[in-house]
């Protein structure tokens, strides 16, 4: 299965993950500082800055895109409960 590497910059941990893994599936297990509310892509609590490798994430859904807009999210920010890592190296940190 294709793999990707996600680095959670705030805790200094890089995790090798299968392609398609959502950030939420990893971040809490390693104690990263990304925090969650609804876990369903609506509340924007888990807003996360993608420091690099933004292009290696699956594109946001229409719903996620709308939530990001409603919450005035800056460029290269995603919802960790929605964002799926597809390949390559991605570095993230709490927004």
């Amino acid at each position: 299965m294709p793999k990707a590497n996600v680095t959670f910059q705030d805790v200094g941990i890089t995790v090798s993950v299968p392609a398609g893994t959502r950030l939420i599936e990893v971040s809490e297990k390693i104690g990263a500082g990304i925090t969650y509310g609804c876990r369903e892509g609506e509340c924007c609590t888990c807003l996360t800055e993608v420091v690099s490798g933004y292009e290696h994430l699956a594109a946001p859904s229409v719903l996620e895109d709308q939530v990001l807009k409603d919450n005035l999210a800056p460029r290269h920010h995603r919802l960790a409960c929605q964002a799926q890592v597809l390949k390559g190296d991605v570095i993230v940190k709490p927004a």
Binding site: V11, T14, V15, T21, K29, I30
Partner: peptide, 18 residues
């Protein structure tokens, strides 16, 4: 170490996470 920014950078495989 985590509080003082001295934690070692770790590389792990997701399969090892509980």
């Amino acid at each position: 170490k985590h509080l003082t920014g001295k934690a070692d950078h770790r590389v792990i495989d997701m399969a090892t996470l509980a």
